[in-house]
């Protein structure tokens, strides 16, 4: 090939790949294993769920499923016409909104504290991570015991300090249950938030803060006008992560309150239809709507985040 005159190569042989083309090719090559894996472990179940949601499949005999169109969604007994489903949607949104908001605020406070220079800082940083490191089922069980109305340590402490006069049913009382679930989630996820925010804080230029000190700008002003705008991109990422997690919450709620309607999340609803009531079709429809909701929220968050980032840069 090398000996062929240039004019001929242009006419006859296909042009050799440009650098950009061969890089794209290499990129696909490296991505291929992951793509195959994703199709197998995520794509296939997703498609199957989608298919089941359009049938009247029953858990006892999946083979006998008949195509029923959108009956599972909008039919007389469809998910979207079930008040229990809408209650689960409300619970989930409330849970996600409140818990992520509290976790963000608390995480910010914890991160600011951990960012300060004090002796034993690295030990404290590691210790703070413990709630996040414990598997959710384990910590949820632990909290279930602590919140137990008769034997729980929480009621015991509140009683002996006379803050309450009789034991409270933290997870059984409809007015308390969702609050308890949120509290446990805050306990568990705040360290995660704090660590993401701490990483952002440590990237901040220290000399700006010295300049502000020399100029005598009040620390609160510096926080609001310098720190917050600079960590906002990282904060947004952390909030999106947590919000997506919270929207599909299952284990915490299931361990603490089982199938209780007061706290039932969208995931719990789907499991109940699918396993307890053996209605694979209906359960799959619920799971599909949940998937759509999470996908929509992700798209929204990313678009909004980008718009706001560009707004800050412009």
């Amino acid at each position: 090939m090398a000996a062929v005159p240039v004019a001929c190569t242009q006419d006859r042989a296909p042009a050799p790949p440009t650098l950009a083309e061969s890089r794209v090719r290499a990129a696909w090559l490296f991505l291929a294993p992951l793509v195959v894996l994703m199709v197998l472990v995520a794509g296939w179940p997703l498609c199957r769920t989608l298919w089941f949601s359009l049938t009247d499949a029953d858990l006892k005999d999946l083979g006998a499923a008949r195509f029923v169109g959108l009956d599972n969604y909008t039919g007389e007994f469809g998910v979207l016409r079930d008040p229990d489903w809408w209650r689960a949607v409300g619970n989930t949104l409330l849970f996600a909104g409140v818990s992520v908001a509290i976790e963000t605020l608390l995480g910010l406070v914890v991160a600011l504290v951990l960012d300060a220079d004090f002796p034993g800082r690295s030990v404290v940083r590691a210790a703070v991570l413990v709630p996040w490191a414990i598997p959710t089922v384990v910590s949820a069980k632990m909290w279930a015991w602590m919140l137990n109305d008769q034997f729980g340590v929480i009621n015991h402490v509140l009683m002996t300090t006379h803050l309450i006069s009789q034991p409270l049913a933290w997870v059984a009382d409809p007015s308390l249950a969702l609050g308890s679930v949120i509290a446990v989630d805050v306990w568990k996820a705040t360290p995660f938030m704090a660590l993401l925010i701490l990483a952002a804080l440590q990237m901040l230029p220290t000399d700006c803060y010295e300049a502000a000190r020399v100029d005598g700008i009040h620390p609160v002003t510096v926080f609001v006008r310098v720190t917050l705008p600079l960590i906002r991109p990282a904060l947004m990422v952390a909030v999106i992560f947590r919000a997506l997690d919270a929207l599909r919450v299952f284990d915490l709620v299931y361990v603490l309150t089982s199938n209780s309607r007061d706290t039932m999340s969208m995931s719990i609803y789907a499991r109940q239809q699918l396993v307890d009531f053996q209605q694979v079709g209906l359960g799959s429809a619920a799971a599909t709507v949940l998937f759509g909701t999470v996908a929509l929220c992700t798209a929204l968050a990313i678009t909004l985040g980008r718009v706001r980032l560009e707004g800050a840069a412009g």
Binding site: P205, D207, C208, E210, A211, D215, V226, P229, L230
Partner: peptide, 12 residues
């Protein structure tokens, strides 16, 4: 008033 080696401007 101080002028820093790295300028120390507020990036945003």
């Amino acid at each position: 008033a101080m002028v820093f080696q790295s300028y120390a401007l507020y990036p945003h």
